[in-house]
Design a protein around this nucleic acid. Structure first.
Length: 421
RNA sequence: GGAGAGGUGGCCGAGCGGUCGAAGGCGCACGCCUGGAAAGCGUGUAUACCCUAACCGGGUAUCGCGGGUUCGAAUCCCGCUCUCUCCGCCA
């Protein structure tokens, strides 16, 4: 979330920026200021009272030592009286703090200056486009080819779990694993440290990366233990740094992780749900960086280039768009989406989202670094899918098909052990 | 899951209910010393928020977390949590 000092010092900038999201921020910011002022006043009163009580209590000890019992008893009564007053003040202060928190949680991140105003994906800006390869001579949707080749079973998933839980099998499963290994190996070459995090996280973690409270309905919940299935590896990986104080020389921290991701996708029934286009459990390799604020936008571009190189290496037609204000995630300041073209469906499928959150996440994460002067600053966090598997699989099947089956891209062959399906 | 032991500052380690944000040591920083270094000596060395022009000074809170007792708690009581040891169960 945004910090109060930021909102104080950059009020107009924040209002203008948030307008690009269609958010009317002025009333919210005013409320933040008012609550913060109230909080300060209350703290002053409360602290003063406590100081008085502390002074008296100390003197009581002294009085007892000197044997002045009566005087001590008098003071005891005085402190007791103050105590009641103090607890009232404290309750009020807590309420104010909670109210302040609540308002802050409603304010999304301020979009970067390059973000266009806009309401939906219609307003996203095309950044660049890969070459469109020659269309395959056969155009079966991936769910049909997959069935023909017996590499993917949607019906079986229905039996085991429910819709949106496909079962990969045979060469399909092998291809899936090849993609994961390939993506992990590539990221390691770029200096990302691999991690295998837990797939369940607690509420603190979900809160720090912004899944709670805004996106609670999107996560599967283990109510008995108050845990959440991760919707993305971003959550556990970023939370490695929750509450941490780093040295400037520790930066950047670069991590890559493969995890299954679980999403309820509530409210999206009927929208592009065929085949692998939208599923409840999917595999994804995620890259995460924590960097010095001065470098975060350079790093964002680097991450975009890296993801682009992955998509290119898979010989898929792609395009990169810069999300407009309205399409931007709550916590992001700037996001690039990667879409690949699925030839048979004649559709663009989102396969990666690369974002700079600036210090919006680290504020909640409370992850800072210390510079040479021992001053502490919030780090900037970034992440990106590199890549999300199902739609990559869909695009591979649709774009690399011929009448005999599927041609496996060159880079994956060392991993699959076969060049055709 | 059961039994026991324990969680104190960057680390180690003291701490009777009162003047303890916390002895001492190590480490670290700066200074002195030295041709230079080591040793030695000296000084300093937690975090957050509030007051303040101030990274000077002052206030409040923090000794795993949360409650309670008390005029006053690192010190007493209760709950939780984590670590270690033993037992049970188990991929």
């Amino acid at each position: 979330m945004l910090s109060v000092p930021y909102l104080r010092e950059h009020r107009e900038e924040a209002i203008a920026g948030l307008k690009k999201r269609g958010v009317e921020a002025a009333p919210l910011i005013d409320k933040v200021m008012a609550l913060d002022d109230e909080r300060k006043t209350q703290q002053q009163a409360h602290d003063g009272l406590l100081a008085e009580m502390n002074r008296l209590s100390k003197s009581i000890g002294q009085l007892y030592k000197e044997g002045k019992r009566e005087e001590a008893e008098e003071k005891k009564a005085a402190v007791s009286a103050l105590k009641e007053k103090a607890s009232g003040l404290e309750a009020a202060r807590k309420d104010t703090l909670l109210a302040l928190q609540e308002v802050l949680e409603q304010i999304p991140n301020v979009p970067h200056e390059t973000v266009a105003a806009g309401q939906s994906e219609e307003d996203n800006v095309l950044v660049r486009e890969g070459e469109l390869a020659a269309a395959p001579n056969q155009k079966k949707p991936h769910w049909d080819i997959a069935k023909d080749l017996d590499i993917l079973d949607f019906e079986l998933g229905n039996v085991l779990t429910g819709s949106g839980f496909p079962v990969f099998r045979g060469k399909g499963a092998r291809l899936q694993r090849a993609l994961i290994s390939y993506f992990l190996d590539q990221a390691q070459e770029q200096g990302y440290e691999e991690v295998m995090p837990p797939l369940l996280v607690n509420a603190d973690s979900a809160y720090a990366t912004g899944q709670l409270p805004d996106k609670e309905g999107q996560m599967y919940t283990i109510t008995e233990d108050q845990l959440y299935l991760i919707p993305t590896a971003e959550v556990p990986i970023t939370n490695i740094y929750r509450g941490r104080l780093l040295e400037e020389s520790d930066l950047p921290r670069k991590h890559v992780g493969y995890t299954p991701c679980f999403r309820r996708e509530a409210g999206s029934y009927g929208k592009d749900v065929r085949g692998l286009n939208r599923v409840h459990q999917f595999d994804k390799v995620e890259i995460v960086q924590l960097v010095h604020p001065e470098h975060s936008y350079q790093v964002l571009e680097d991450m975009v280039s890296y993801v682009e190189s992955l998509v290119q290496s898979l010989e898929l037609p792609y395009r990169i768009v810069r999300l407009c204000g309205g399409d931007l995630g709550f916590t992001s300041a700037l996001t690039y989406d990667f879409e690949v073209y699925a030839a048979a469906q004649d559709k663009w499928l989102e396969v990666s989202s690369v974002s700079n959150f600036e210090d919006f996440q680290s504020q909640r994460l409370n992850c800072r670094f210390r510079d040479d002067n021992k001053k502490k600053h919030l780090v900037h966090t970034l992440n990106g899918s590199a890549l999300a598997l199902p739609r990559i699989m869909a695009a591979l099947l649709e774009n690399h098909q011929d009448s005999h089956g599927i041609v496996v891209p060159e880079v994956l062959r060392p991993y699959t052990g076969f060049d055709r399906i």
